[in-house]
């Protein structure tokens, strides 16, 4: 087990390196292939009508005049051993792990990510609990009575949940429950400051996000349950004289949950990388909003940082899922 985790960690680090290289390539190389010169990149950091002298100065300061591989090396070096940035009268030490410095926002990327992660984590965790409970419950009930009124209604709602875009349901929820009825707040408050207000503000985002996912999970659970409930071991459980409820929950759901755990782990990983649309719709100051901002600003260090963080969480959750899989399903051996 331990050696398995070590080997997986090494593989994960290599994978993350590849991800950074690819991201770096996409955001640094592609614009150049499309004809964008380092001059234009530098010009983004200058006010109206940049002069050639200004461009040269900024370019040199940001290292944009270096070769791409050198810039990549600097980036990786920053993560491992930190970096310093020229602020003018002084230099700023960008501590390990240095994910770069956004000159657009005058901030280091890493503290921003750390600062925003609780928001995204709050959003993801709350929504995950909601969708897991509601989705799995709806899926189980649907599967036990396929074709019933509940099943048809639940699957209809699920279809709607999957089909309706978040920027529709989210905005609508905001309009009705926040602007019109004034039940829910719109300004994010950290849990540590005021838990009730935290939940109050996050409730609508949770529901909107959960609606989307619980729909998927309901369908997933339903089909999984339909499959496992016709397994031989379910018949065995019944033959023991177990009550049906126990047959469903202890034997049926237990087996049906395994693929759900996998998908759940991946979804959480992706969400932690930034719930982009939800955070934009509800103006939540999380990683997703940061990413959107960075992309509209064409601000490369944050884009890289968010991509790397997202990749990290996906890889991490992958690993967790694999380990979890081995505990959930004793037939799986980690080697």
């Amino acid at each position: 087990m331990i050696s398995y985790i070590i080997r997986r960690t090494i593989a994960a680090v290599i994978l993350l390196l590849v991800v950074t290289a690819v991201t770096f390539g996409i955001f640094f190389l592609l614009p150049r292939l499309a004809g964008q010169t380092p001059d234009q990149l530098a010009a983004q950091y200058i006010g109206k009508n940049p002069s050639p002298e200004d461009i040269a100065a900024v370019k040199a300061n940001l290292g944009l005049d270096k070769a791409v591989y050198e810039q990549y090396w600097d980036f990786i070096k920053g993560i491992v051993s930190g970096a310093t940035y020229n602020l003018g009268p002084t230099t700023a030490k960008c501590e390990v792990p240095c994910f770069g410095y956004s000159f657009k926002n005058h901030t280091e990327v890493w503290p921003q990510l750390v600062d925003r992660l609780p928001v995204t984590a709050s959003l993801a965790a709350g929504a995950a609990v909601l969708w897991l409970l509601s989705g799995v419950a709806a899926g189980v009930i649907s599967a036990l009575k396929p074709g019933s009124v509940f099943d048809r209604t639940a699957m209809g709602v699920a279809l709607a949940g999957v089909s309706l875009p978040m920027f529709f349901t989210g905005q609508l929820a905001l309009l009705v429950f926040s602007y019109q009825l004034d039940i829910f707040g719109r300004t994010y408050v950290p849990f540590t400051e005021n838990p009730s207000q935290w939940a109050n503000t996050l409730f609508l985002p949770w529901c909107s996000l959960a609606l989307l996912y619980s729909a998927i999970y309901a369908r997933l659970t339903r089909s999984g349950m339909l499959e496992t409930m016709s397994e031989d071991f379910i018949r065995t459980a019944r033959a023991k004289g177990l009550k049906e409820r126990k047959v469903v929950l202890k034997h049926g759901l237990r087996a049906a949950l395994t693929p759900i755990v996998t998908v759940f782990g991946m979804d959480i990983g992706l969400l932690l990388g930034g719930a982009v649309i939800t955070e934009s719709v509800f103006s939540l100051p999380g990683i997703g909003q940061y990413a959107v901002q960075a992309i509209t600003d064409n601000d490369l260090p944050p884009i890289l940082g968010v991509t790397l963080l997202a990749a990290f969480f996906v890889v991490l959750c992958n690993l967790v899922v694999d380990v979890l899989y081995a505990t959930v399903d004793p037939r799986v051996r980690l080697s």
């Binding site: 950091y45 006010g47 940049p50 002298e53 200004d54 300061n61 020229n86 003018g88």
Partner: peptide, 15 residues
Amino acid sequence: ERSNFARDVLSLGPN
């Protein structure tokens, strides 16, 4: 001086 002659770092304003 700082706003007009440090264009490498304070480059957003006019000079």
